[in-house]
Simulated scan of single mutants.
Amino acid sequence: MASRLASISVDLDSLHHYCRIHGLPETVLDARARKLVYAKAVPRFRELWATVGVSGTFFAIGEDLADADASAALRQAHAAGIEIANHSFSHDYALSRRAPESIHEDLVRGEEAIRAATGTRPVGFRAPGYTLNAALYAATEARGYRYGSSAFPAAPYYAAKATVMGALALAQRPSRSVLDSPAVLLAPCEPYRPDPAQPYRRGTGAVLELPMTVTPGVRFPFIGTFAATLPLPLIRAAYKACMGRAFFNFELHAVDVLDATDGIPEALVRQQRDLQVPAARKLERLATLFRWLKADADPVPLRVAAERLAPGL
């Protein structure tokens, strides 16, 4: 067994969340488009993982599971051995800015929706928009989570997000996304126990934090959106730069295996440009990357990674 650990996780953000990011009315989505994540993306990831011989973690949004088809798709994924973790109930980008009681309630509702669909309570949490603070970390501790995976210390991503949000505001089409505290830019890149009062710093918190992988130095984000669409030599170089790390946390989104031909409205495709890349091409690229991870590390769900890493932290 490889000494290095790796995890592959997918945030199951439905398309209306991308409308909110880009300042588009959700009415551009028809009923079919609203179901694409569970109808198309979840089966594609399951098939891809089965073909490569790896598994991973799905981060589910509780309110989406009110749909019977979505609930059934998640239940089938859980039965196939895929970990299901909590991505909040409402995916409110400003969740970390709510009152502590409201944060706690949202986490509980997300857990209950996942338990109703799968029969199992989640042990992992990822914040909407990767935005973590003391109040949200305290809620994960109070709920007894084993791990969180929200820290995204990627300077280029942070700068790009700030630029896009500013441009949308000037265009009077404000994004509902939230820019995180600059403190995230100095967060550890390796798994760590946070300081509960300042969770982007090391401390003695009970909930282990598993940051998304970024390259050394410039902290370029190694996430699905870029890995599936940028030139392969660039991605290969970024991958090799991360080889010195004991843990590789590869984070993706459901849209990373969707494209315009799936029935996504043109208004959203124009804004979310990776949707212009054929899904077949993205799936082929991701299969290549997953094979790299399988050859170089032991790919396990985040829950297993947290269990193995915790004793040394």
Rank of each mutant, 00 (worst) to 15 (best):
A134L: 03
V10I: 15
R285C: 01
A39F: 04
A162Q: 10
L136V: 06
L283S: 09
D13N: 14
S14A: 11
S150P: 07
A134S: 14
L252N: 14
P25C: 05
V42F: 08
I103D: 00
R115P: 06
Y38G: 07
A80V: 05
G23D: 04
V28Y: 02
L210I: 11
F220V: 06
P174C: 00
D69T: 12
Y200N: 00
P100H: 01
V257K: 07
L107Q: 02
G166C: 01
M212W: 13
E266W: 12
P311C: 04
L234G: 09
T27K: 03
D92M: 04
L168S: 06
P43I: 12
F152T: 07
L309N: 11
R176D: 12
T215S: 12
V218S: 06
G244M: 14
A6T: 12
A171C: 12
E251V: 15
V178D: 05
T229K: 02
F248T: 09
A197P: 08
G312V: 12
A117R: 02
G244Y: 10
V10T: 11
F247G: 02
R219L: 03
K282C: 01
R143S: 03
E284S: 14
K40Q: 14
D30V: 01
I264M: 03
A139K: 01
R98W: 04
R121W: 14
L132E: 02
I84D: 09
P194K: 12
L12F: 07
L185P: 11
A197V: 03
F58L: 13
T229S: 12
R46D: 10
L132K: 00
R109Q: 15
L36T: 03
H22R: 12
V257L: 11
V184E: 08
T57H: 06
L132C: 02
P174H: 09
F250W: 10
S149P: 10
P299E: 07
I61T: 13
K294G: 03
L24K: 05
P156F: 08
L15A: 02
A280T: 15
M1V: 04
M243H: 15
A116H: 01
Q198E: 09
A85V: 01
V164Q: 11
E111A: 13
I84E: 12
L95T: 04
I84C: 06
D64E: 14
A85P: 01
C189E: 13
P299H: 00
A142D: 05
L289F: 07
R109E: 12
A77E: 08
V255A: 08
